[in-house]
Write a protein that binds this DNA or RNA. Structure first.
Lengths: 224, 224
DNA sequence: TGGGTTATAGTCCCTTTGGGAGTATTGTGT
DNA sequence: ACACAATACTCCCAAAGGGACTATAACCCA
């Protein structure tokens, strides 16, 4: 992570830049990093809390952030602040054009995929699990959106936050819609056996998916 | 991973059960595991190829699979087959009700989130990156669906595959729709500055999201 | 028939990351 | 006054990522 790249500059990974970005957004302490993680970042860049205490130390050691050791009563506290060199490094990173692809990991979908080896109840439960998570996330999103609508969007970040919000919102709406659809598909099933009728329906599902895409011009493909 | 749990049985993790499930689906060799990973599993359970050679060894050592050492010419090959105890273990796992939540990881969205610190081109590029990935995935999905429609869906798995297919399809359709919407939102932007007008628009975006959900009854929320 | 390329079949090991356990002190509410 | 939540860390083992490396087999094309 702190090896040099060809330029003789530090080769940080995206997680380090994520921390640098949070410092640029005004996070002051490692604990504040953990709060940002809990509030927002975990939905698209989940990282272990313990690492959020390590990462800024590296940035400070490279001169990309300044660390100030204070104390509150008898307890130590380290305050971090992004440095001018850190801001440049962040900008340079944002200017690069190689971006790791989106990754999705879902144990629930894994269980659906293996649904044939369990019971119909197991299969329904896996789908139900996705639905519950989506609904919980949508409630969370609703509370954040309402907070912003009442108190005003963050003046420096609202325009950007809205883009990210819409992504996560759409994702969870999609999850819930898929789960609802899936439960409906399974509504007549008493088992998970592969019957001829179910194979026909499977083919129909594939055809519908392809047809929807052909029939919807890109200009109409937008949230809402 | 191979420690005992309370029952005196092996406490495998979900990745080990994923391998067990692939063996149950008929995968014979570690190489076939890597092909399943490339074809499908990577979209919702991405794992390093090197681990796909290690994992079945563990299963074999626990009696959940049988390993047969053959040779093709002068090259060794290990064939794996799930054992009756392995099938039971898989069923027991599918019967459990604790499921890890879905995790999403997107460097592109991270860059959007930090968009304020880069240029408008950087921001557009990050969104464009999501769009390109979604389109590539949809092409991939299209080719698989067409293959199934021409050659018939897999007779033992088609009914289950269709559920998983629809999930991944909807996910990528959502990604593309979001990216299209995002590019449109940015269409008038010459920079990433937080203007009053953009803050108003941000609030409107939040309101629209909340309103859409309130106005769409669950029964109408389904793919398509 | 030869030679290049892709597919098949692995091993090894260094780094990074996850994530739990442990330890305190400070602030808040009742 | 006491409990509980929030703040503020450190340490470390196990798991996972993932690149480097080595082969042979199978296939295709000239």
């Amino acid at each position: 992570m702190s090896r040099l790249n060809e330029d003789g500059r530090e080769a940080l990974n995206s997680s380090a830049y994520a921390i640098l970005g949070l410092l640029a957004m005004g996070a002051q302490s490692a604990y504040e990093l953990t709060r940002q993680m809990e509030r927002t970042l975990r939905f698209f860049w989940p990282r272990a809390a313990s690492k959020l205490y390590e990462a800024p130390k590296l940035l400070a050691s490279l001169g990309l952030a300044r660390a100030t050791h204070e104390s509150v009563g008898r307890r130590p506290r380290t305050r971090y602040q992004i440095s001018p060199r850190g801001e440049e490094a962040l900008q340079r990173w944002l200017g690069t054009r190689t971006i790791a692809p989106i990754e999705l990991e879902s144990e629930a979908l894994l269980r659906v995929w293996f649904g044939r080896f369990g019971t119909i109840e197991d299969l329904r439960n896996a789908i139900q699990n996705v639905q519950a998570q989506a609904q919980a996330n949508l409630r969370w999103g609703t509370s954040i959106a309402q907070e912003y609508l009442v108190e005003g969007v963050p003046p420096e970040r609202g325009h950007i936050s809205a883009l990210t919000f819409r992504f996560l919102w759409d994702f969870n709406v999609m999850l819930e819609a898929w789960a609802t659809w899936g439960q409906r598909e399974l509504s007549g099933w008493g088992d998970v056996e592969p019957t001829a009728e179910r194979m026909d329906r499977a083919a129909a599902i594939l055809r519908e998916a392809l047809a929807e895409r052909l029939s919807t011009p890109p200009s109409e493909r937008s949230p809402g």
